[in-house]
Design a protein around this nucleic acid. Structure first.
Lengths: 226, 226
DNA sequence: TTTTGTGAACAATTTCACAGCT
DNA sequence: AGCTGTGAAATTGTTCACAAAA
């Protein structure tokens, strides 16, 4: 029962979405030399309720000690395993404008579990340029690159107008996990996972709540928070 | 005592999170000269079920015509209103590295509802530089800038190490809506909204699903001895 | 007819509260 | 005594299926 290798288990999406946050906080605690945490402490550092943390962790297995708490390093390791970070995932970024560059120099990348193996852009002005040891190639080289060294995750950092074409090229090459920073809905065949990260969506959600706050505060319509 | 019809209504978070997507697709349809859509058409363009779209829209009010569909321009306007985009929201970006620059030149920004009124960075090397008509100022000028021209939303595009300090400065200045691109959990007082956009979280979620796919595909690596 | 708007059924997620282990 | 792990309850979100409207 508790000796179950956890990975077979069905882990709810909502839980999966929170695991990276737990992992990050655990890593910071480990750096600070903390050996053990209670669900209460960890939850408050992450910003969730302790009952939720415990329920989430219960989907991975039973890694705490009653009356004591969780061993920081060990729990971090188990979450890494559950997320599939035991091995490094090779990532390619398509689109080397400001965003692509920001992403490729992003520290969180190298830190844990991911490794940039390809940079692509069709702009002749940047072709051949080497960023952090990886040369920028034209998109036409994608298939070949994937054959030479497999790419597990493709990141789209192009303008919206190019996103679907780039996506098709990634899918065509055999890449089935895509992270899309362009503000467009991508259509992909079954079996391909797409996650979208979109600035304007996030801003609009913030605007909605800001509006509610200002309405609740009794401001009249159209007024901007003072 | 606002006379707004639907805004008083409680709109579920899950619905709010989808409205920006509906709005974007409607805007594209409007550009293409489409006058009217059915819930079926719009839903499939956005990638949700038509029943969900109708339920979501029902929270805003009743803006469709039975037997016909929705008038594109009008529905876009209503969603804009619900999201609080009738007026422009003044935004400040803190941290003008690659990410900050990518964000400030992001097209979706100007398009609809948002306007960059301040850029901040404490690096003396970039201070004074003007990006798209807005000068980069040191963070110490934040309070003054907010007093001169109100800032509704603060965007944190600094490294994680600076994020909490920047966040404190934003809150101190009176800004209550924050979009955080740094990979860190921010602690803020009640009444301040923080949304986090995090590359490594998204990558880790993709990695989880990629791992499941490869396990399901019969890769008998198993490897997890237990 | 066609397609919306919505109660009701269903599903997922969160929170509670406490039994069970150290 | 203290804290985890987990059924059960409460809440939130999604889908169904059909009456109502044009």
């Amino acid at each position: 029962m508790s000796a179950d290798p956890a990975l077979r288990r069905e882990i709810p999406d909502a839980t999966v979405a929170r695991l990276p946050g737990y992992l990050r906080t655990l890593s910071r605690l480990a750096e600070d030399g903390v050996l053990s945490v209670s669900s209460e402490e960890l939850a408050s550092a992450v910003g969730v309720r302790s009952s939720q943390l415990r329920k989430d962790l219960s989907h991975l297995g039973s890694y705490g000690v009653r009356g004591v708490g969780y061993e920081v390093e060990m729990l971090a390791l188990e979450i890494s395993r559950a997320l599939g970070l035991s091995t490094d995932w090779p990532v390619a970024i398509v689109g080397m404008g400001n965003l692509g560059r920001a992403l490729s120099s992003y520290s969180g990348f190298v830190t844990k579990g991911f490794r940039i193996v390809g940079l692509f852009d069709d702009d002749p002005a940047v072709e051949g340029e080497v960023v952090l040891g990886v040369p920028i190639r034209p998109l036409s080289g994608l298939r070949e690159a994937h054959a030479a060294e497999p790419i597990a995750i493709g990141v789209i950092a192009t303008p919206a107008s190019a996103a679907q074409v780039v996506c098709d090229a990634l899918v065509e090459a055999g890449i089935t996990s895509i992270l899309n920073f362009a503000p467009s809905v991508l259509s992909v065949p079954d079996g391909v996972d797409v996650r979208r990260v979109d600035l304007s969506t996030e801003l609009q959600i913030l605007a909605f709540h800001a509006q509610r706050k200002s309405l609740a505060a009794g401001d009249l319509d159209g007024a901007v928070a003072r």
